[in-house]
């Protein structure tokens, strides 16, 4: 063992100080996930704020982990949450069960259910890991209104599905927001 050996060892340490750091400063600085990362779910809205979810339970059906509970409800003229007859009255995702596979998103016929980047799903009790509809619903963007309210963008649900994106622009939803756009549609 040479006399300089201990110093040599420090040399490695010292040298590392000038290299690029691989450590992520989490949670102080946070770590954004990749743009298409499957984080938590979100229940989207129509451009006027009505919910897209029709309470069909197809997501619950598709889920291999039985993480989703949905119960449908009946829209009335006085109390309307989504265009059409049916809405998701009760919606829960149990994040203790969810494996983030995204099959539910594939199953959703209305594009109500999507996944966003948010992944901080940890807690110290079970109760708080069952996310309910209130937690999952997308925030109200400009031009949106908290349901229940009447259909603002058409006379029936068909108008929403056929002409929705264009109507959304008309209501001032900014271009970069996640509403299916005309161009997107054209590409498809």
């Amino acid at each position: 063992m040479g006399i300089f050996d201990p110093v040599k060892g420090f040399g490695v340490t010292f040298g590392m100080m000038f290299k690029k750091v691989a450590t992520e400063e989490y949670p102080e600085i946070g770590a954004p996930a990749a743009p298409r990362y499957h984080g938590r779910h979100q229940l989207n809205r129509h451009p006027d704020g009505l919910e897209k979810c029709v309470g069909c339970e197809l997501c619950a059906w598709a889920c291999p982990a039985d993480a989703i509970f949905v119960e449908g409800g009946d829209n009335t003229e006085e109390e309307r949450y989504s265009p059409g007859e049916r809405y998701g009255a009760d919606y829960q995702i149990n994040y203790l069960r969810c494996i983030g596979c995204g099959l539910c998103v594939e199953a959703c016929p209305t594009r109500s259910l999507t996944m966003i980047n948010f992944y901080e799903l940890a807690d110290d009790n079970r109760q708080d890991l069952i996310w309910t509809k209130e937690d999952l619903l997308a925030p109200l963007l400009p031009g949106m209104e908290q349901p229940p309210h009447p259909m603002r963008l058409g006379d029936n649900e068909q108008d929403y599905y056929v002409g929705g994106p264009a109507l959304a622009r008309g209501r001032g939803v900014p271009e970069q927001e996640t509403v299916e756009t005309d161009t997107e549609e054209a590409v498809r």
């Binding site: 309470g55 339970e57 059906w61 119960e71 449908g72 409800g73 009946d74």
Partner: peptide
């Protein structure tokens, strides 16, 4: 029973 559940539930 309208909209209350699905057969698989």
């Amino acid at each position: 029973y309208r909209f209350r559940s699905r057969p698989f539930d």
